[in-house]
């Protein structure tokens, strides 16, 4: 069996303690949460940190709750917990759509929301979901707390705004697109080669429409197709302010496909992934619209 190289291990007693440990040990130290991205990389010796700072015991980083005008999701929330959260599912059905297709149930018992987002794998599902929801990452370092919009969070594959001595504390999702509001909902759709596989491509859609079926707010996230910050900004811009019609959704899908930059791998060639970006964006928008207001389905 593949095994990691040597490292030291410390359990953080608080977020401050974790930050202090990271500062003391420098860039060769890493936070470990669920470990389901990091430990496999360490076994392959693609990652060889000198110190692991375990934040599993930090209750401050847990919990899913409503706080003012946001839903806050602690960085240490396990995937299974988010999937089981009625609050999260009621406000943002796409979170449950996405969680249902992340890895498998046993991995979801251990892997964390914050760990997934910080891994910033181009195929990771929650990145596009939070991007579509316009979530904000709350990051803490010795200088204090920073708030970074998801659309500025990703600095490239496996790179994020979280500094070497910082900790992602939580994600906050504005309730302005809550599915509890009339004309608002969301959906996430993924194509994979098999249950539990990383996405070939996936799309997140968040919609809000007014009484005249005009799109007042829209978020489109794309997974694994090289969309900048996991977002289909051009497609969002196209839809916003337009009537939500089948033609407009189709065109938004085309725009999303045009503006992404997939790379070929064993999951598929570029043309297929580009096609999926459009197809899944369309389908996710339709699904969100159907959830938002069953009455408008006839018009699409």
């Amino acid at each position: 069996m593949q095994v990691p190289a040597h490292f030291e291990y410390q359990r953080a007693t608080s977020v401050e303690d974790a930050i202090a440990l990271l500062e003391r040990y420098g860039p060769e130290s890493r936070i470990v949460a669920g470990g389901h991205s990091l430990i496999p990389m360490m076994k392959l010796r693609l990652a060889q940190p000198e110190l692991l700072v375990d934040i599993n015991g930090l209750a401050d980083l847990g919990g899913i709750s409503l706080a003012g005008d946001v839903l806050r999701i602690g960085a240490m929330v396990r995937h299974a917990e988010l999937l089981a959260s009625v609050t999260a599912g009621t406000h943002f059905p796409l979170l449950h759509d996405a969680e249902r297709v992340i890895a498998d149930p046993v991995v979801r018992n251990r892997g964390t929301v914050g760990g997934s987002v910080c891994q910033a794998d181009p195929s990771e599902d929650l990145s596009a979901a939070f991007t579509a929801l316009r979530a904000t990452a709350v990051i803490e370092g010795s200088a204090g707390v920073r708030r970074v919009p998801m659309r500025e969070f990703f600095h490239g594959p496996y790179q994020t705004a979280v500094g070497p001595a910082e900790v992602l504390v939580e994600l906050q999702i504005p309730l302005s697109n809550s599915a509890t509001l009339a004309g608002s909902s969301s959906a996430y759709l993924k194509v994979d080669r098999r249950a539990g596989d990383w996405a070939v491509a996936a799309a997140a859609a968040v919609l809000r429409i007014d009484r005249d079926s005009v799109v007042t707010e829209v978020g489109i996230g794309l997974t694994a197709v090289g969309a900048r910050q996991f977002a289909a900004v051009e497609a969002e811009d196209f839809l916003r302010g337009r009537q939500l019609t089948g033609e407009h959704i189709a065109e938004a899908g085309d725009i999303a496909a045009q503006h992404c930059s997939p790379v070929a791998d064993q999951r598929g060639p570029v043309d297929y992934k580009r096609h999926l970006a459009g197809e899944l964006a369309r389908r996710a928008l339709h699904a969100a619209a159907a959830r938002a207001d069953l009455a408008i389905i006839g018009r699409l």
Partner: peptide, 20 residues
């Protein structure tokens, strides 16, 4: 796989033994 099925539908089947 989904990619191979879709490519076959498009009339552009891929070699499955080589890198895509």
């Amino acid at each position: 796989t989904p990619a191979h099925v879709w490519s076959a539908i498009q009339g552009r089947p891929l070699r499955t033994d080589l890198a895509i």
